Amino acid sequence: MSIAFIFPGQGSQTVGMGAELAQAFATAREVFQEIDDALGQKLFKLMAEGPEGDLTLTENAQPALMAVSLAVTRVLEKEFGVGVDKAAFVAGHSLGEYSALAAAGAITLADTARLLKLRGLAMQRAVAVGEGAMASLIGPRTDLALAEAAAVAGSEVGVCVVANDNNHGNVVISGTKAAVDKAIEKAKELGARAIPLNVSAPFHCPLMQAAADEMEEALARTTIIAPRTPLVANVTAAPVHDPDVIRRLLVEQITGRVRWRESMTWLAGEGGVTRFVEAGAGKVLSGMAKRIAPDSEAVPLNSPADLEAFAKSL
């Protein structure tokens, strides 16, 4: 049995996340305190109690989701003797890539928290509210080719690209509002359903270049070492362990496509992964794993009981 730890991205946040882990394990409380100290912010209180509107802000959601993921992996290691090095690979969806790198020891927890806080702020600053948009194209006829065709139509009036290739039946487009609106019309003509997303900025598209520039400067000042477990990167859908390459890909990821379907296909194929373990809030990636690699097992780790059951299964 070959394992990959996978780490969720924005959208998986909920008020109350991490609270059960903190109640059960001192190790989890230590993680949350370290992140609070690094940010000079009572982030865990916001995670546990809300308000939801503040938690959903990109600058808070990104480090908060990482916090839960790292609480899960550190509890697994310290309380159950199951380290991330038991896995063949790690991967993370968008901001989850930072969680994966922190869990694999490539970036310190404090640096990861600060990077994600900045990443959220930089993404928000890059495009004025209301100028950009994102939409999820869904349905059995939705594939990458359909989404690309919709994006080409949208590009006639502005920036529009495929932002997230999540799985067959779920592809996200991003760009200027007028362009995304036109792409939605085209997608519907081609047989897809389209849902405008309630996001504060158009992520993973060229409009994020200013954010990429900010992150390039910040990453240049950050110590990154080779992860204990290879990372399958969003923008290449291939394994990487060289720190300089990781640094470059984290910059490219801001404006580039999240190639999640391809990443999971590679992991289940060439990577030989038979068990995907989702470390952190929610079950979004577990659902995607079952659709992309139906012969594999997908295990979400949210609660103390989940962690105990997983450790016993090894």
Rank of each mutant, 00 (worst) to 15 (best):
E214T: 06
A19H: 05
L39R: 03
V129K: 09
A201D: 01
G81E: 10
L57C: 11
A210D: 14
A211G: 03
D213R: 06
V232W: 03
D165P: 12
F7P: 00
N170Y: 08
M134Y: 08
A201Q: 04
I224V: 15
G9L: 01
A64R: 08
A22Q: 00
V199K: 04
A279K: 00
A110F: 01
A135L: 04
A48V: 02
L144K: 08
A128T: 08
R259H: 13
C160N: 07
E34W: 01
V127H: 09
I225N: 11
A298R: 02
A147T: 03
A102C: 15
L197K: 06
T229E: 10
E270G: 14
K182L: 15
H241G: 05
A64I: 04
P63S: 01
G287D: 11
P243L: 13
S94Q: 04
E131M: 14
A71G: 07
A289D: 02
A279M: 08
T112V: 07
A289P: 01
E30S: 12
I173T: 05
R247S: 09
D242V: 00
L219D: 11
F44P: 00
S2V: 01
V68L: 11
E131N: 13
D85S: 15
L115F: 14
L146E: 03
F32K: 02
E270A: 15
V82N: 02
G40I: 10
G16P: 02
L39Q: 04
A298V: 04
M66H: 10
A201M: 12
G139W: 12
T265A: 15
K42H: 14
T274C: 07
R257P: 07
G18K: 01
L314C: 09
V82P: 05
V171N: 01
R247L: 11
A88G: 00
T73R: 07
L76C: 07
E216A: 15
E49N: 13
L207W: 03
V245Y: 05
N164Q: 08
A128M: 10
W260T: 05
E185A: 14
A24I: 11
Q41D: 10
K283V: 13
G50F: 14
I292D: 08
A183I: 04
S174M: 11
A289Q: 01
F80R: 04
C205A: 11
P51Y: 06
D143V: 04
I246N: 02
G83R: 03
E217T: 13
T255L: 12
L250V: 04
A100L: 07
L190A: 06
V240E: 15
K45V: 09
C160R: 08
E214Q: 13
A163Y: 10
A233T: 11
R275H: 15
F80Q: 07
A104L: 01
G169F: 09
A26I: 03
E59C: 06
V235D: 04
A135G: 09
A183P: 08
A237C: 10
S155Q: 15
K42E: 14
V171P: 13
A22N: 04
V235H: 00
I3L: 12
L55A: 05
L21Y: 05
A61L: 05
I138Y: 03
V245I: 14
T265P: 06
G83Q: 01
E297I: 12
G280P: 02
T112A: 15
G9Q: 00
V129C: 01
F203E: 03
K177Q: 13
G120S: 08
